[in-house]
């Protein structure tokens, strides 16, 4: 079956994805909360999922932690069934160490670093000028 896979799609490496691992928003207004679910690619966002694989809380708690839970065993199973992953889930799994770190994570990191440097520079120069005065 694995050998035939390439033939069926004119040399493309994988069968067309029918399942996707993605976020499903579960919170209320102004309070996002996400379930990590596996669903049909074309299913509506409000449809009940095939299976829940974890949760993600994008708002930091009192200890400044963003809590996430993941069921690696089932994620591994669904990936073996040919399920794809959405970009946010890829980023999250990259940060969790399950996937390689997503390029966007690197990009946001270096952009934030650059911005922080610039702001710190402006602050230091601003304070110096005030001291001189």
């Amino acid at each position: 079956m694995n050998k035939l896979r390439g033939v069926a799609r004119c040399g493309l490496p994988f069968p067309p994805p029918t399942k996707i691992i993605r976020f499903q928003r579960q919170g209320c207004t102004n309070r996002p909360f996400y379930h990590i679910i596996v669903a049909d690619v074309k299913s509506d966002i409000h449809f009940p999922p095939i299976e829940q694989l974890g949760t993600h809380d994008p708002i930091a708690n009192e200890n400044n932690e963003k809590l996430t839970s993941l069921n690696y065993e089932r994620i591994r199973y669904w990936l073996s069934q040919g399920a794809t992953t959405s970009r946010p889930v890829q980023e999250l799994l990259g940060l969790a160490g399950f996937f390689p770190i997503h390029p966007r994570s690197y990009m946001t990191a270096w952009r934030n670093r650059k911005l922080a440097e610039e702001t710190s520079k402006i602050e230091t120069t601003g304070t110096n000028e005030q001291e001189k005065e």
């Binding site: 694995n2 591994r76 990936l79 073996s80 040919g82 390689p100 997503h102 690197y106």
Partner: peptide, 22 residues
């Protein structure tokens, strides 16, 4: 560069998962 690397790695990872489980 890093997107190319990422895509290559992900392809091999997907293959790994599929083959490993089957």
């Amino acid at each position: 560069r890093i997107f190319n690397n990422y895509r290559t790695t992900m392809k091999s990872l997907r293959n790994f998962f599929i083959v490993n489980h089957s």
